[in-house]
Design a binder for these strands. Structure first.
Lengths: 349, 349
DNA sequence: CTGAAAGCGCTTACAG
DNA sequence: CTGAAAGCGCTTACAG
């Protein structure tokens, strides 16, 4: 039955047993009928019988070698892919990556060997093993656009997750502008006329998108907007400025900042949303399950991962049938929450 | 600098650029010095320079075909590796796997292409790509011991996470017996004399370990123990039996079962631990952050993953220096919690 | 209709 | 010390 010894059963052995050539075995297995190749039913059956009796399976490794493709999708994360105490940013994305890979019959290669420099992995280093995979998905809050351009120039195929303002780079990103505008409009309709924006640095594309959408929409309605960069100024100082400025609504880019500012507000006896409205321009954090039900929006992260893999697969295999756009933007869902109300009549200062 | 076109760079191309033979490139890469093979430093350097300039990496597929090492650790999970709504069982393990792989300079190959049959991945199937990796880590609540034996017989190197009662299989598992005995002893000391055990099926090694330790310890103290298998009987019925039996302490194997039973108790006005003590013989679930602070124990899952990779690495590379045991059992931490008290004087029935 | 041959990118004895 | 050759297990034109 099964060959219990002497290595695996190969097509050559099958061929011997069936009294045909090794090539014929391959032909039978792959059932090619393309260019007039036809195996008579009789020999076909004979070969298949032998195969069944030996529990032969084609060696995928050899198969890949001749195909050129390895059916291997690389996954490069700038930080640890799997969650540690402080962050499980990637898991929803990876869930999507996994399910798409599964559907497409691809295996995933995680580049965990890339050396960490200052806590971040480097794409380019002495022993870059990127080429182990057919192509790769790039994940990271902040990517170096210079590195991306260099990678593109090398001819390596990849898809970035998150919009990248670099020419010729495929990505699947999130449309942050639309939900930001939507929330800004809700704030305007609620009657707010003095707003504060606690944001991050404007280095990243997504931060700029939010910023532009918010300032645009508020300016159009003639609403005053004060800004501060939380990382630069510190949250305590941000909160001081919010109070000093008399804004009735506080937009916050980072959900964690939002939680802390909320705590500061609570400590000062400022009621939300009665005294001050809070709007978060991002994801409600999964972990903070016991936290505040912020008015915010949510990106379809799992789908983001799945789409990136599908897009990469298309790029690797060449176009066939309907084409996916190489630059996609996915929509967010606005979550009403409970922290956006009408402006306070009394001052909470 | 980088080769901007024409598919992947091969050793042949490197050889051309460096003015040596393809075989020499291979020799340089693998640094073989076995049988008097020595490449002069000058050509060595020339070859390495070209390799660096082209970002060449040996094709893992070709390498596997001839039986070479790829510094690739496979990760096979019987279920989805990345969390979905219902489970993130694997993430702590994978966090450990990732950090160990990083430390050892290994990349991770996730076998996501293995087809799902009845929601579980199959190790053996037509296109099993296990061989792409040098060896692999096997993860899964339930593994088929027959499959494991078959895989062992095939000569493939792997390490299972979780103790496996199959000869000749390397594993890193958890010692469930010791903490179970410890908690049983605490129950005895508290004065309990009638206990109930709501457990899972005894098919898995870990379930049997808990069961044996618990029955052993309680029997030695002459304490009555009633058992029921939750999945077979249903939790409502289990709860009915607990009440009918008059036990003062309820041991529960599965944390989720524990949460539900706790809810049933609460619904019936049974106070924990005043009327009834709860002891969970397993992990407090990360997700149920807002839940009950059960008396239970916790397995070092992250370390489990890390150790498995270290062990596999040793097996693959052959012994060198201090040897890790091929069958390791890690210790749990007992978490006191708040659900184990002295037995109730009044009946809660 | 089928077999012999080339080739995928490597590693590893084996000759020079 | 290095190159030419064989071989890993397959697929795919190309001859019979």
């Amino acid at each position: 039955m099964t060959s219990s010894q002497g290595g695996r059963v190969t097509q050559r052995k099958i061929a011997e047993l069936a009294g045909v050539s090794q090539a014929t075995v391959s032909l039978v297995l792959n059932g090619r009928t393309d260019n007039g190749v036809r195996i008579p039913e009789e020999t076909r059956k004979r070969v298949l019988d032998v195969i069944k009796a030996t529990t032969y399976v084609a060696d995928p490794v050899a198969r890949s070698l001749v195909g050129g493709m390895n059916n291997l999708v690389g996954v490069f994360t700038y930080e640890h892919a799997f969650p540690n105490e402080t962050s499980d940013f990637y898991t929803p994305l990876l869930t999507g990556v996994e399910s798409a890979a599964e559907a497409l019959g691809l295996d995933l290669l995680m580049f965990t060997s890339a050396p960490l420099v200052d806590g971040r992995r480097r794409i380019f280093h002495e022993n870059s093993r990127l080429r182990l995979a057919d192509g790769c998905i790039l994940l990271g809050r902040k990517m170096d656009n210079g590195e991306l351009a260099k990678l593109r120039d090398s001819g390596y195929k990849f898809v970035a997750i998150g919009r990248r303002d670099v020419e010729g780079i495929a990505y699947v990103g999130v449309d942050y502008g639309t939900p930001t505008r939507e929330l800004a409009r809700q704030a305007i309709e609620a009657g707010h006329s003095a707003a504060f924006y606690a944001r991050l640095s404007l280095a990243g594309e997504s931060s700029r998108d939010r910023h532009d959408a918010l300032t645009d929409e508020l300016a159009a309605a003639g609403i005053a907007l004060t800004q501060a960069e939380t990382t630069a100024v510190g949250l305590a100082e941000v909160w001081r400025r919010v109070r000093a400025g008399g804004a009735t609504i506080l937009f916050v880019e980072d959900p964690k900042d939002a939680e802390e500012l909320y705590a500061l507000a609570a400590a000062d006896g400022v009621a939300v949303p009665d005294d001050l409205s809070f709007v978060v321009l991002g994801e409600r954090d999964r972990k903070g399950g016991c936290g505040v039900d912020f008015t915010c929006f949510s990106a379809p992260r799992t789908e983001l991962g799945a789409r990136a893999v599908a897009l990469l697969d298309q790029i690797l295999k060449g176009v066939q049938g309907p084409t996916l756009s190489t630059r996609q933007l996915l929509e967010c869902t606005v979550l009403p929450g409970r922290t956006l109300g009408v402006p306070s009549v009394r001052s909470y200062r």
